[in-house]
Amino acid sequence: MQYKKYKIGAMARLLGMSTEGLRYYEESGIITPKKQEDSKYRYYDVWDIHILVRARAYRRLGFSLQDVYAIINSQEDIDISQLLTEREKEIQAKIVYNINLLRRSRQIRAMYQDAQSMINQYRLEDCPGVYRINTQNKSNLISDPAVRLCAREWIEMVPFVFSSGLFPREEIEKGGEHYNLGFGIEEEYASYLKVAENEYVKYHPARLCVYTVLPSSSDVALTTARLSGALEYMQRHNLKLIDNAFSMLINFHKQADTYRNLHRVWLPVEY
């Protein structure tokens, strides 16, 4: 049976594709347009349309081009149901990831909006439970290979991971300058990300804290001494510092040659 032939431009318009997209499938061996002997043109027919629709369906389901080629050009029946079962597991994992990603995006937006009214202001609130790892003593990276390996693994988990400072209680109380920098993950994502406390990862539980938002820059770092305003707030409200403070970096940008940051800070207290 003779089928009507279509040039590449007409075929592309019919399918809503670019000519480059058609060539992409052709070069992958998924479609094989006929070449007319007396011209340089390639011609497609209705079978190519149906092959492309099926190929694009498989691609939308997440199959690689190699998989699509194997399915369409197989000389034997392939168990599509088994292939789809495997793909469904991957799709489900992506759904779970995207649900968590959406929740995290909403949290970051809410944090940023709240932070604008809390710069150098103080209030009592429960901090989130947080897992932390220290990667720096002040500006010096910790050289322990295990710490660096853990840090690399955590960086792969952004945006659930945030930059975080740790301010030792004794340094705060004596007005010292020592602090640590590293990364944190909120407790609600720990199970999903398979994060647990170990030799390097420390857990900071949710509890009553003095909360504030403090700016810093490459010229004026967020050091332990910068928490003096929180200590004054504690004195006025008869509160006692009971543990190390920690921070969460929520904004970072470069202005001219200066880096400017915004930090949420929690100091654990009791009456």
Rank of each mutant, 00 (worst) to 15 (best):
K4D: 08
K5N: 08
Y6C: 06
M11S: 07
S18E: 01
T19E: 13
E20C: 09
E20F: 12
G21C: 10
G21T: 14
Y24A: 09
Y25S: 13
Y25L: 15
P33T: 12
Q36Y: 13
E37Y: 06
Y41P: 11
Y41M: 07
Y41R: 11
V46Y: 11
W47H: 15
H50A: 12
I51R: 03
V53S: 08
R54D: 04
A57G: 08
Y58W: 10
R60W: 00
G62F: 14
S64C: 08
S64Y: 10
S64Q: 04
Q66K: 14
D67W: 07
V68D: 04
V68N: 00
Y69N: 08
A70C: 00
L83T: 12
L83W: 04
T85I: 05
R87Q: 12
E88L: 14
K89T: 10
I91L: 14
I91Y: 02
Q92K: 03
N98I: 03
I99P: 01
L102W: 09
L102G: 01
L102A: 12
S105Y: 02
M111A: 00
Q121N: 15
Q121I: 07
Y122K: 09
R123T: 15
N134I: 11
T135M: 05
T135L: 02
K138N: 04
S139E: 08
L141F: 09
P145L: 07
E153L: 13
E153V: 11
E156P: 03
E156D: 08
E156V: 08
P159L: 10
V161T: 14
F162E: 02
S164G: 03
S164C: 15
E170F: 05
E170M: 12
K174I: 15
K174C: 12
G176T: 14
H178M: 11
N180H: 13
L181K: 03
G184N: 04
G184Y: 03
E186P: 04
E187L: 09
A190C: 10
A196G: 11
E199D: 14
Y200F: 15
K202L: 11
P205Q: 03
A206H: 02
C209L: 01
S216K: 03
V220I: 15
A221L: 07
A221P: 08
R226G: 02
G229N: 06
G229E: 05
G229T: 12
R236P: 06
K240A: 14
I242Y: 01
D243M: 06
N244I: 08
A245R: 05
I250D: 00
N251H: 13
H253C: 11
T258G: 02
T258C: 13
N261E: 12
H263Q: 01
V265C: 01
W266P: 03
P268F: 00
V269M: 09
Y271H: 09
Y271Q: 14
Y271N: 14
Y271V: 13
